[in-house]
């Protein structure tokens, strides 16, 4: 396995931002009651993280250490604004469903954490690969969550009826408690497959 694949796989599974590092949960819990929302948010975060890590890896060494956090925040906020405008222009319904949570990508700790710990110290190529891996891991977690919740909560996937009309929807799955419960169970499954090494 060469270096590039390793960085990517690391982000996707071994350092999975949601299940392993327990970061970015606000978005993970809030918008995963439909698969469409999960996919959209996954793509949006992918774009913001890859684009801002590229910028940070290029300009990182010219930014004075004391002001780096506000500078990173501004870079992230700029890309999030682009995503928001794009969604509002071409996918109005989705943009309304996601509401304020698109803006909350800015305060998603995954992004700032990656910029601070990886992109500021590595070259553009590695940073982009790392960002792609991490956001793929994030998207995978969002999709896993939203498949479970939409299936049980509405009996549908992507809005298409899967479980038939005899299915009684579990309303609590699409409301707040369902988010916490499903994520708790998924973390449990993930930890059972690959236990955390005691350090």
């Amino acid at each position: 396995m060469n270096n590039t694949t390793e960085i990517f796989v690391n982000g996707l599974w071994r350092d999975n931002p949601v299940f392993r590092q327990i970061l970015g949960l606000c978005i993970t819990l809030a918008i995963t009651n439909r698969v469409v929302n999960g996919v959209t948010m996954g793509v949006a975060v992918f774009f913001v993280l890859v684009a801002s890590s590229f910028i940070v890896s290029v300009i990182g060494e010219y930014v004075p250490r004391r002001v780096r956090i506000p500078v990173y925040m501004l870079i992230i906020a700029t890309f999030v604004t682009l995503v928001y405008m794009f969604l509002r222009a071409y996918f109005t319904g989705l943009s309304q469903a996601l509401g304020a949570y698109v803006g909350l990508i800015i305060t998603n700790c995954i992004i700032l954490g990656r910029l601070e710990s990886f992109s500021s110290e590595n070259g553009p190529w590695e940073s982009v690969v790392d960002a792609a891996g991490i956001s793929a891991g994030f998207a995978a977690a969002l999709i896993a969550m939203s498949v479970v919740r939409e299936l049980l909560g509405f009996g549908t996937l992507f809005g298409i009826n899967v479980l038939g009309s005899g299915w009684t929807p579990w309303v609590s799955m699409i409301l707040a408690p369902g988010g916490f419960l499903v994520l708790g169970l998924l973390v449990w499954i993930e930890r059972s497959i690959s236990p955390v090494e005691e350090g």
């Binding site: 707040a176 916490f180 419960l181 708790g184 973390v187 449990w188």
Partner: peptide, 22 residues
């Protein structure tokens, strides 16, 4: 149980708390 320690059990507790707040 081991895999539930920390995050897992906290999330489940939060879920129950959210149910109560409903």
């Amino acid at each position: 149980p081991e895999p539930f320690r920390g995050t897992g059990i906290t999330l489940l507790t939060a879920g129950l708390l959210a149910l109560a707040f409903m």
